[in-house]
């Protein structure tokens, strides 16, 4: 596996289960400590027995640990525990991450949609492609989301939806959303966006009336939730670009996929 998967493993809390092999690329001490929450020394990893973990100086002054060869953590599982950390609010995270001007984001997204419309011609195809792009983003975005937000496992789907609306939207797009209209089982709800940076300067021409301009967002949610083992269906109920009076996303939980052991994602 590669470095980026560290967060995903840690989230599942099985990073260092007995017999797990973890392989990483070249990482700095800071990053190492960041996701193991202990320095290599604290891990009491026998450096000599693990030749691949010898610290060495690369051209940069940072101390790097080369762990390209897989490490067997079977001896170490007992020594490591994840320090519990308080979840952070969306505002707090957004205030601390690097940000860019929303107009650059909006116009770039506009350029993408326009390119898709020229290439694919059919509005339906564009909707599909936007959703696919969102899905691709979602499956990678969840790692960053979990790493930065410190949220722990949600107890139910209701909490999940709240977290998406209050933390997820805020931390990436700087906007808040609210969750309403729960059905009786608590598996279907509506997320109402209070602001939507994607649609600044946008008006749909008559030829594109069937276009779900913000379809990328639904894809993101679907992709991200799939990575935390929830199969969902996300659809736009109301879209201001199509003449409605709000942006409303319906999120419907289809099924919860149980995690299978042995985990396959770090082959």
């Amino acid at each position: 596996m590669t470095f980026g998967y560290g967060t995903r493993l840690r989230r599942r809390g099985y990073l260092l289960r007995c017999g797990r092999q973890v392989e990483m690329g070249l990482i700095s001490k800071k990053k190492w400590t960041g996701f193991f929450r202990k320095s290599p020394q604290q891990l009491r990893l026998p450096l000599s027995s693990c030749p691949s973990l010898k610290p060495f100086r690369a051209s940069s002054p940072t101390l790097l640990y080369n762990c390209t060869v897989s490490l067997d953590f079977s001896q170490l599982s007992a020594q490591i525990s994840m320090a519990p950390v308080a979840p952070r609010s969306g505002d707090a995270i957004f205030a601390n991450v690097e940000r860019v001007n929303a107009e650059l984001f909006t116009l770039t997204y506009g350029a993408i949609v326009r390119q898709l419309l020229t290439d694919l011609e059919e509005v339906e195809e564009v909707n599909k492609q936007l959703d696919q792009m969102g899905y691709n983003i979602g499956i990678r975005l969840i790692d960053e989301f979990l790493a930065k937000s410190n949220v722990s496992r949600c107890v139910d789907f209701k909490e999940t939806a709240e977290v998406i609306a209050k933390v997820g939207f805020k931390m990436f797009l700087g906007v808040t959303a609210s969750v309403t209209n729960w059905d009786a089982d608590g598996t279907c709800c509506i997320i109402v966006l209070e602001d939507n940076p994607l649609v600044d300067f946008v008006e749909l021409p008559d030829t594109c009336q069937g276009l779900y301009y913000c379809n990328v967002l639904s894809g993101v949610i679907r992709g991200a939730l799939e990575m935390v083992s929830m199969k969902t269906e996300v659809t736009w109920l109301r879209d201001m670009l199509r003449g409605d009076d709000a942006f409303e996303l319906q999120v419907k939980l289809l099924k919860q996929v149980a995690e299978e052991y042995p985990y396959k994602d770090d082959e």
């Binding site: 001007n101 770039t108 691709n136």
Partner: peptide, 16 residues
């Protein structure tokens, strides 16, 4: 003055 997170842009750009 509105901003979005850099990663949101980076994700979008990488999709582009």
């Amino acid at each position: 003055k509105q901003e979005v997170s850099l990663s949101a842009f980076a994700f979008l750009f990488s999709e582009l």
